[in-house]
């Protein structure tokens, strides 16, 4: 600091407390609303203090969901979300790491061509080519399956690009030293490159897990069987699925539980996550 002015600092704190309040407010509201009895939301303004029905509401949500509207219990949706998020994350990382390895550490015919094929996927988010992609998955018989939920989202130009960026920063001499030491490509990959990439892979893991967990449109389209509903899309079904006003207390309990896993991941791995985002995504 060049200088420290008490007044300026006070102003900064005021602005930041306002900012934090703005950021926290929606989740606060959700936490407050979730333990209220259903009657609370029929009249007047929503409460700003928690209600008494925490245990009951969460148990209902966890075990029954909103069965009248056709949504399965949260426990099932959470499991589905976890399976989908992990499958997407691990799949993305695995195929991105090996393809980045091929692109950086080998020279072969059509290398640039393959790079661009992979790269094109970055330019085509699922939302913009949604109808034909759905048709392909339907033709392959992958609707209502974990494979259908995850495999089409596994190809990742972003992850490949980020891993490639990292590999480019690994000193040339390490690979040369390994070669002089008698290591072939896969041995070098396993003994040297992967152990060196652990931090970066972990950071990517956080980012990709959140991406996978928060998928919305894709599961919405390809799951018609509630057995395969994920929690993020399930919330939408709870909000719009009934014929009456949403059952806010159950919706909010679901919101809390849907947001909790990725938020926890970020809070516990904040340093790694911030590093992964800012250092690789350049």
């Amino acid at each position: 600091m060049v200088e420290n002015r008490p007044l300026g600092n006070l102003l900064s704190h005021v602005v930041l407390i306002f900012g934090v309040a703005l950021v926290v407010f929606p989740i606060y509201v959700a936490i407050i609303a979730s333990p209220h009895p259903p009657g609370t939301f029929l009249r007047g303004v929503m409460p700003l203090l928690p209600g008494p029905n925490a245990l009951e509401n969460y148990r209902t949500a966890w075990t029954e969901g909103r069965s009248r509207a056709g949504t399965p219990p949260i426990s099932l949706m959470l499991t589905n979300s976890l399976i989908m998020a992990l499958a997407i994350t691990i799949g993305k990382l695995a195929i991105s790491i090996i393809s980045a390895f091929a692109i950086v550490y080998f020279r072969f015919p059509f290398r640039i061509f393959f790079f661009w094929i992979i790269f094109l996927t970055l330019m085509l988010p699922v939302e913009v080519r949604i109808v034909p992609t759905f048709q392909v998955v339907a033709d392959l018989g992958m609707l209502n399956s974990y494979a259908g939920l995850s495999i089409p989202l596994i190809a990742s130009a972003t992850a490949t690009f980020l891993v490639r960026q990292f590999f480019m920063t690994v000193p040339e001499e390490l690979m040369e030293a390994a070669r002089v030491d008698g290591a072939g490509p896969m041995k070098f990959f396993r003994d040297i490159l992967l152990p060196l990439s652990i931090t970066n892979i972990a950071a990517l893991f956080v980012i990709m897990f959140i991406y996978g967990w928060n998928q919305y449109l894709w599961p919405l389209l390809i799951t018609t069987d509630p057995e395969y509903y994920t929690i993020v899309m399930g919330i939408q079904r709870m909000v719009t699925g009934g014929d009456s006003e949403p059952l806010w207390h159950l919706v909010m309990a679901t919101v809390v539980m849907a947001a909790l896993p990725p938020v926890l991941v970020i809070l516990f791995m904040q340093r790694l996550f911030v590093k992964g985002l800012t250092e690789t995504e350049k």
């Binding site: 695995a94 195929i95 991105s96 090996i98 393809s99 390895f101 091929a102 692109i103 080998f106 072969f108 290398r111 393959f114 094929i117 992979i118 094109l120 996927t121 085509l124 080519r129 034909p132 992609t133 048709q135 392909v136 998955v137 392959l140 495999i151 089409p152 596994i154 190809a155 490949t160 490509p185 896969m186």
Partner: peptide, 21 residues
């Protein structure tokens, strides 16, 4: 080897990205 390493990514890209596009 490099083609084998690229294969999973390229196959998924072709089926779920390039073809639908």
């Amino acid at each position: 080897l490099p083609y084998a390493l690229l294969a999973p990514q390229v196959i998924i890209t072709l089926i779920f990205f390039i073809w639908p596009a």
